[in-house]
Amino acid sequence: MATLNELLENFHDIACSPKKQLNAYLEQGKKVVACVPVYTPEELIHSMGLVPMGAWGADIELKESKRYFPAFICSIMQSILELGIRGEYKGISAIVIPSLCDSLKCLGQNWKYAVKDIPFIPMTYPQNRKPESGKEFTKASYERVIRDLEAATGEKFSEASLAKSNEIYNEHNAAMRKLAEVLEQHPSITAVQRRDIFKSAHFMRKEEHTALVSQLIEALSQVEEKESKIKVITTGILADSDGLLKIFDEHGLQIAADDVAHESRQYRTDVNLELESLEGLADKFSRMDHCSVLYDPEKKRAGYIVDLAKKYKAKGVVVLLTKFCDPEEFDYVMVKKACAEAGIPIIQIEVDRQMVNYEQAGTMMEAFIDML
């Protein structure tokens, strides 16, 4: 079995080389479909023998995408379009874009005109996802995605294949939840390494990633921890910048758990395998909660973050607020209030795919640590 360092290096290489991963799958004769955040139905894509590959943007200079977006819009969306225009997604068979926020809706429409050689497939989710009518709407939207995927790729859908993919994704969810618990016991794993493990999952077939995660859990079980750090909880859409994450390590902070859309939020809800496969997938979406882009008039996410901090005995909460993300900004008020009432220190750090200098964030973090 690979050593711990070998496994961590493997996760790092995959996380930092999505184009290499894409080309490797294409060379194997596989068809790849890009999946835009936050909750693209990967199980559907996987069940058709296609490779779902996450498209969360990149820390790059924006040029061409500025012709389609105003400056005051999420840089994740802008950088996804920029990569598409530059040809970085060359070889993929289609891109699926959900409609969970206004920026995502704009991305889909702009993609049709800016990247004409890669078919855009919309995934329309209902706002009221929990009633039976909401589940039926979600299922109908999945059926539309299936038809579009069949047209774009030439592959065929079957309920039996989806049932198997639902099992594979449930197994991966379980492995990632277990890993999160294990990592909390290993403060020697840096914030960047933790990111690599979660990020790499977006660029691999889930059964392949589950196998790597299982090896990592076994390797970590052989490690005797001697290091101790200050535990914090991170929350937000994305925590991907090396410059930002290194601040955690430089100041002796450990991410004990996260409520990050790019990370643990992906793995909280399983498909009910007792239901017919497509209904089970729609039911899964209806049960997803505690996320800024999911309709929640009671804002239960705030209480969830407080409970997470208490569970892991975290000293504070770090809100990584994606710049110009309205849903996250609306939620922050509730999260801050809930943390204040619970006596949990909280800090907000603005993040952006365009940021190259995190000196101000480092200064803010120093002050936050003094407060802790």
Rank of each mutant, 00 (worst) to 15 (best):
R86I: 01
G87I: 08
G87Y: 02
E88R: 08
E88N: 10
Y89N: 11
K90R: 06
S93K: 06
A94Y: 08
I95E: 05
V96A: 01
P98T: 04
S99C: 13
S99W: 02
L100S: 10
L100D: 09
C101K: 00
C101Y: 03
S103E: 11
L104Q: 11
L104V: 04
L104F: 06
L104K: 02
K105D: 14
G108R: 01
G108Y: 03
G108K: 00
N110P: 05
K112T: 11
Y113W: 08
K116M: 13
K116P: 13
D117N: 04
I118P: 01
P119Y: 07
F120Y: 15
P122W: 00
M123E: 02
M123G: 02
M123C: 05
P126T: 03
N128S: 12
R129H: 14
R129I: 13
K130F: 00
P131Y: 05
S133W: 04
S133Q: 11
G134D: 02
K135D: 00
F137R: 12
K139I: 12
A140M: 10
A140W: 00
S141G: 09
Y142L: 06
E143W: 03
E143C: 06
R144W: 02
R144A: 09
R144H: 09
R144F: 05
R144C: 06
V145H: 02
I146F: 06
R147T: 13
D148Q: 03
K156Q: 10
F157W: 05
F157R: 09
E159D: 12
E159Q: 13
A160Y: 05
A160C: 05
S161L: 13
L162H: 12
L162E: 09
L162Y: 12
A163V: 07
A163C: 10
E167G: 04
Y169L: 14
E171L: 13
E171G: 12
H172P: 01
A174V: 08
M176A: 08
K178H: 01
L179E: 04
E181G: 13
E181Y: 14
V182F: 02
V182N: 01
V182A: 02
V182W: 02
L183K: 00
L183F: 07
E184F: 14
E184G: 15
Q185M: 10
H186R: 09
P187Q: 10
S188E: 14
I189Y: 04
T190N: 06
A191E: 05
V192R: 08
V192F: 10
Q193E: 14
Q193Y: 08
R195Q: 12
D196I: 15
I197M: 09
I197D: 01
F198H: 00
S200G: 07
A201P: 07
H202K: 07
F203M: 05
F203K: 04
F203A: 04
R205L: 12
K206I: 04
E207P: 04
E207K: 14
E207L: 03
E208Q: 15
H209N: 15
H209L: 08
T210V: 12
A211T: 11
L212D: 14
S214R: 09
S214F: 03
S214I: 06
L216D: 07
L216E: 06
L216T: 07
I217R: 06
E218G: 05
A219M: 07
L220A: 10
S221F: 13
Q222R: 13
Q222H: 14
Q222Y: 12
E224Y: 06
E224D: 11
E224V: 09
E224T: 13
E225N: 07
K226M: 08
